[in-house]
Amino acid sequence: YFQGQLNAMAHQIQEMFPQVPYHLVLQDLQLTRSVEITTDNILEGRI
C-alpha cells in the first residue's frame, strides 16, 4: 500500500467517525490495511 491509498482510506473513515483523531485512524490503518477492520476497531473502542 502506498501512503496516498492509506490517506484516502483514513479520510473515508473520518467521514464516518469525525470524532476520532486522523492520526489515530491512519496509525491503525497502517497495521490493518483495511477500512473494515479499522472501522470495527473504532466501534469496539480499541481506538
Rank of each mutant, 00 (worst) to 15 (best):
S34G: 02
G45V: 04
Q27L: 12
A10W: 07
G4T: 11
S34T: 02
M9C: 08
T38L: 00
R46M: 06
N41S: 04
R33V: 06
E15V: 12
I47P: 02
I37M: 12
Y1A: 13
V20W: 08
Y1R: 11
E44C: 12
Q14H: 15
G45E: 04
G4F: 12
T39L: 12
A8V: 10
L43Y: 06
I13N: 00
T39W: 08
Y22R: 07
S34W: 04
R46E: 02
F17G: 00
G45W: 06
M16E: 05
V35G: 04
Q3I: 08
V35Y: 08
L6V: 07
H23R: 07
D40R: 15
P21Q: 06
G45T: 02
Q30K: 13
I42H: 00
L43R: 13
V20I: 14
V25E: 01
L26G: 00
V35W: 09
T32L: 03
L26W: 10
Q14D: 02
E36N: 08
Q12S: 09
A10K: 02
N7V: 14
Q14K: 12
E15M: 15
L31A: 10
L31D: 07
Y1K: 11
F2R: 07
Q19I: 05
Q12G: 06
Q12V: 12
D28M: 07
R33H: 13
M9N: 03
Q5C: 14
T38P: 00
I37D: 08
L24S: 05
M16F: 07
G45C: 08
E15S: 13
E44A: 15
Q19A: 09
Q12M: 13
G45P: 01
I47Y: 05
N7F: 15
V20G: 01
I37A: 09
L24Q: 06
D40G: 14
L31Y: 11
Q27M: 12
H11Q: 13
E44M: 14
T32W: 06
D40Y: 15
I13T: 01
T32R: 02
A10G: 03
V25Y: 03
Q5H: 11
L29S: 00
P18L: 04
N7R: 14
Q14Y: 14
R46P: 01
Q30G: 07
L24D: 05
H11K: 14
N7H: 15
E44N: 15
Y1C: 14
E36M: 10
P21V: 05
L43A: 06
I42M: 04
F17R: 01
S34M: 03
M16A: 08
Q30A: 11
P18Y: 04
N41I: 02
F2M: 12
Q14C: 11
T39H: 05
I42A: 02
E36I: 09
F2P: 11
Q5N: 10
Y22K: 06
Y22L: 10
Q3P: 12
D28Q: 03
L43N: 07
T32V: 02
Y1L: 12
V25F: 04
F2E: 14
S34Y: 04
P21F: 06
A10S: 04
S34K: 03
T32S: 07
H23V: 08
L43D: 01
Q19P: 02
M16N: 07
V25W: 01
L26N: 02
E44H: 14
E44F: 14
T32H: 06
P21C: 09
Y22D: 02
H23Q: 09
I37F: 07
P18A: 04
P21S: 08
E15K: 15
Q14I: 13
N7Q: 15
D28E: 03
Y1N: 13
P21Y: 05
Y1V: 11
Q14R: 12
N7T: 13
Q30P: 00
F17T: 00
D40H: 15
V35E: 04
D40P: 01
E36K: 13
G4C: 14
Q19G: 11
H23N: 10
Y22Q: 05
I42D: 00
V20P: 03
E36L: 11
V35L: 10
I37T: 10
E36C: 11
N41T: 02
G4K: 14
L43W: 06
P18K: 06
H23C: 13
I13M: 04
Q5S: 10
Q27H: 09
Q19N: 13
H23Y: 13
L31H: 11
L24N: 04
T38W: 03
N41F: 04
Q27E: 11
L6R: 03
T38R: 00
E44V: 09
Y1P: 11
V35P: 07
Q19F: 14
G45N: 07
L29T: 01
D40F: 15
A8Y: 12
Q19K: 11
G4P: 08
F2V: 11
P18F: 03
G4H: 14
D40V: 15
M16H: 07
M9T: 04
D40S: 15
I47S: 02
P18D: 03
I47A: 02
V20C: 09
L43E: 05
T32N: 03
L6C: 08
D28T: 04
R46H: 06
L31G: 06
T38F: 02
N41G: 02
S34Q: 03
L26K: 03
L6Y: 08
R33M: 14
D28G: 02
H11D: 09
I47F: 08
E15T: 12
M9V: 07
R46D: 02
Q5G: 09
Q30I: 14
L29Y: 02
I42T: 01
L43H: 05
E15H: 13
R46Q: 04
A10H: 02
P18N: 04
G45L: 05
N41R: 09
M16Q: 09
Y22T: 05
Q5W: 15
Q30F: 14
Q5Y: 13
N7S: 13
M9L: 11
Q14L: 14
L24C: 08
N41K: 06
L31F: 12
G4R: 13
I13D: 01
S34N: 08
D28P: 11
D40N: 15
Q5A: 11
L43I: 10
L6M: 08
V25D: 01
Y22V: 06
V25Q: 00
L24G: 02
Q5M: 14
E36F: 10
T38D: 00
E36H: 09
L6N: 02
Q12K: 13
G45D: 04
P21M: 06
L31V: 12
Q5E: 14
H11R: 14
E44P: 01
Q27A: 13
L6W: 10
D40T: 15
L29W: 03
V25A: 04
S34H: 03
G4Q: 14
H23L: 09
R46C: 06
Q30R: 13
N7P: 09
P18T: 04
L43P: 00
E15F: 12
I47K: 01
E44G: 11
Q5K: 10
T39C: 10
